[in-house]
């Protein structure tokens, strides 16, 4: 079992379910979900996830707004933006705002694995640069 905790923020239940399944398959067990930004912020209050998967297209607040709110609480929060659209504009905006990854739906084991591996890499680098 892997220790990283994960928060999924997505209004589409089947997407959430799919991601949970994939994560469980990859032996991640500490997973919480939220179907919109306000629920997410409530959960976030007493849950410090290693990684947040954050859908961009959500009805109330979109993913970018939630991204800003999360960053206000924790500027170093590792956030991966998720979208059904792979437009360059979205990709640029997400990464420029400080997202650490970008996944285009549908979720696949490969894509999620890539993100988890990048997380480990990035944390390694961050750890090293903090140590030095």
């Amino acid at each position: 079992m892997k220790h990283q905790s994960i928060l999924i923020i997505d209004d589409d239940s089947s997407s959430r379910e799919l991601l949970i399944t994939i994560l469980r398959n990859l032996e991640y067990s500490v997973i919480k979900t939220a179907h919109d930004g306000s629920v997410a912020m409530r959960i976030y209050g007493n849950f410090n996830p290693s990684i947040v998967f954050l859908d961009i297209e959500m009805p109330e607040q979109d993913g970018f707004q939630v991204l800003s709110q999360l960053q206000k609480k924790n500027p170093d929060q590792y956030i991966v933006m998720v979208s059904a659209h792979s437009t360059m504009d979205n990709v640029k905006k997400a990464l420029d705002m400080g997202a650490k990854g970008f996944i285009v739906k549908p979720y696949t084991t490969g894509k999620v694995k890539d993100i988890m591996e990048k997380y480990v890499r990035d944390m390694g680098i961050a750890h090293k640069s903090k140590a030095s």
């Binding site: 589409d12 997407s15 799919l18 297209e57 059904a84 739906k105 549908p106 696949t108």
Partner: peptide
């Protein structure tokens, strides 16, 4: 269609997506 696009590929139906 957006929803279908997002989900069907993940469940093994990329053409539908």
């Amino acid at each position: 269609s957006h929803k279908l696009k997002g989900s069907s590929g993940g469940f093994g139906f990329p053409e539908l997506g």
